[in-house]
Design a protein around this nucleic acid. Structure first.
Lengths: 247, 247
DNA sequence: TCCGGATACTGGTCTGACCACTTGACCAGT
DNA sequence: ACTGGTCAAGTGGTCAGACCAGTATCCGGA
């Protein structure tokens, strides 16, 4: 009985907001939303601590993280100033841009789909050239959980696992890190996105085509099979988003 | 007299290593070099502070930054453990991987060139579709400083500016952030790379081709012109690196 | 007018304390 | 044998306050 109850309870980890995280989020939001304009000076650490009702180390930690993300410029003795984040921030900022105030930014989603469509075929081609035989089973397993599972979100995860292995096969640090960053943006929004992407992940045969081309060491075929798989959902969603923006 | 002396002195900014930065670098190096294996526990903050001879807040700040980069997992009440950075870290880790112990990692450099060759043509194609008329002058100016300057490093910077504008024209957040991250990896190593890339940036006419295709709103032409520009240096360097790895 | 230094900011760092959480061992019930 | 409770030790989380180290500004003397 206990087991059954557990499944139904839909537990989620208790969200314990840490103080520096909270501060970081607030400042980050102000920067991303433009309430703190580029070039503008932030209040001093002491002042921020006072205003936010937290200790100075907490503020300090948040500001250092902002600096690491290249969102602000901290100068010893001088004021901390806001940078132009679109010109300086790295790909790791993407999650924060995709979901803002708990809702998806569709223009960012569009951009992600676009980039995915441009990059994934190249990665598949690389995997076709370099992939080891071990890929065979890994991809097969991902495909079988893709057709075995009926939960939309689980299928999204299976698809992510599939691409994860393809990226492995490409043996490219840069594409690996890019994938990690994109995944980090995708996963927090996976519930909202699962519905939109459902049509794509149900094309199990298309995934099989990609796998066959990769394992046949045929980069051109891998490229085109990947594009065939990704393009429909991409263009559909982009036009849907476009219509949505009209209204 | 004073002015002339100044120019000759070859000043460089005094490196003021801040304590938390130093700690961050040390731990990061240990993780990236594998001396701290994934899954392994770090010493406690107090112990680290003691061993490194710094205060606990300094250690703490470094660890929080490690956590933000997804290199370690900090758990309240439990131990801080090392993550498998190749699977979790984002593109912003790239600079640290490209130059390690003050020398270039050629396999990372190869990967960057590869990725650049795969992505840049797509970005140029997007810019051809979406680029505004303002691009015209911006690109022209970048090209003229490309042919005007005779310092190799200055030409690298001019080329970066050129691509910066192309990325602008593509109007894609994702490609913009990717470019920022790649640039952040490239710039610290620009002196070493300027020599290797000299052949490419001297092909001023090839840049003109790209610009012409983009301004003609011809995505296919932009794609192929970009590939024509980037491929030679890329394949040359990759084979050179390959030979180097043999020896 | 210009320069140079006092001064009042800013961030950088440390100490030491206390709170909150996790772990594991031990123990009491069932 | 297994649950659940309790407790102590160790960990990260947070704070207060102090002092050091740079920067910016303004003001008085040359």
């Amino acid at each position: 009985m206990t087991g059954a109850t557990l499944v139904v309870m839909a537990l989620k980890p208790v969200a314990r907001r840490l103080v520096p995280d909270e501060v970081f989020d607030q400042i980050l939001s102000d920067v991303v939303d433009g309430q703190l304009a580029p070039g503008e000076s932030l209040p001093s650490e002491r002042r921020l601590a006072e205003v936010l009702g937290v200790s100075r180390p907490a503020v300090r930690e948040a500001l250092q993280r902002m600096a690491q993300a290249r969102l602000v410029d901290v100068r010893h003795g001088g004021a901390t100033t806001v940078r132009e984040f679109r010109r300086s921030a790295g790909l790791d900022l993407l999650p924060r841009l995709l979901v803002r105030n708990d809702e998806l930014d569709v223009s960012v989603a569009r951009s992600i789909l676009e980039a995915r469509l441009a990059i994934a075929p190249e990665v598949a081609a690389l995997a076709a050239v370099r992939g080891s035989e071990a890929l065979h089973d890994a991809l097969a397993q991902a495909i079988s959980s893709l057709e075995g599972d009926d939960d939309p979100v689980a299928r999204q995860r299976a698809a992510l696992t599939f691409w994860d292995h393809v990226v492995d096969g490409a043996e490219s640090v840069v594409f690996r890190l890019m994938f990690n960053s994109l995944r980090a943006a995708y996963e927090p929004a996976i519930d909202a996105l699962a519905v939109l992407m459902e049509a794509e992940v149900s094309q199990v045969d298309a995934y099989r085509e990609v796998r066959a081309a990769v394992m046949a060491h045929d980069p051109e075929a891998a490229r085109s099979a990947t594009e065939t798989l990704l393009r429909p959902a991409t263009t559909n969603l982009i036009s849907a988003i476009h219509d949505l923006e009209e209204a």
